Simulated assay, not measured.
Amino acid sequence: MASLGVLGRALSFAAVGLPEPADPFRVELTAPGGRTWAWGPETAAQRVQGGAADFCLRITRRRPWSETDLTATGEDAQKWLEVARVFL
């Protein structure tokens, strides 16, 4: 599910009528077993970090961002967590 959320970032923005940001994103999530799952370039200024379970709850709109351990660095990353979804 986490991969689907990362790959579906454009859908999150499109669903609220916003263009997908052009800048690259880095997503680093801590898997249930403690491993780190990462997507995007390490040098990306737009970053989302936190637990994979909270990320999945956020992108399925089952938990507000404020009730997760997710952090966002950069204006576009913050906006993404506000509008995140994997369905319309």
Rank of each mutant, 00 (worst) to 15 (best):
A2T: 05
S3T: 12
L4E: 10
L4W: 15
L7I: 13
L7W: 13
G8P: 03
G8V: 06
A10V: 08
A10I: 05
L11R: 04
L11S: 06
F13Q: 07
F13G: 09
A14V: 08
A14H: 06
A14L: 08
L18I: 11
P19R: 07
P21V: 03
P24C: 09
F25H: 04
F25N: 01
V27D: 00
V27M: 02
V27H: 01
E28P: 03
T30M: 06
P32L: 10
G34P: 05
T36E: 10
W37G: 06
W37H: 13
W37R: 12
A38H: 08
W39I: 02
W39H: 07
E42G: 12
T43R: 15
T43C: 08
A45F: 04
A45E: 06
Q46L: 01
R47T: 01
Q49L: 06
Q49A: 07
Q49T: 08
G51T: 05
G51K: 03
D54W: 00
L57Q: 15
L57S: 13
I59R: 01
I59A: 04
R61I: 14
R62M: 12
R63M: 13
S66K: 12
S66M: 10
L70S: 01
L70A: 04
T71Y: 02
T71I: 09
A72G: 05
T73A: 04
G74H: 00
E75Q: 14
A77D: 01
Q78P: 04
W80Q: 01
L81F: 02
L81R: 01
E82Q: 12
E82H: 09
V83W: 00
A84N: 05
A84M: 06
V86I: 14
V86Y: 08
F87W: 13
L88M: 10
L88C: 14
L88E: 15
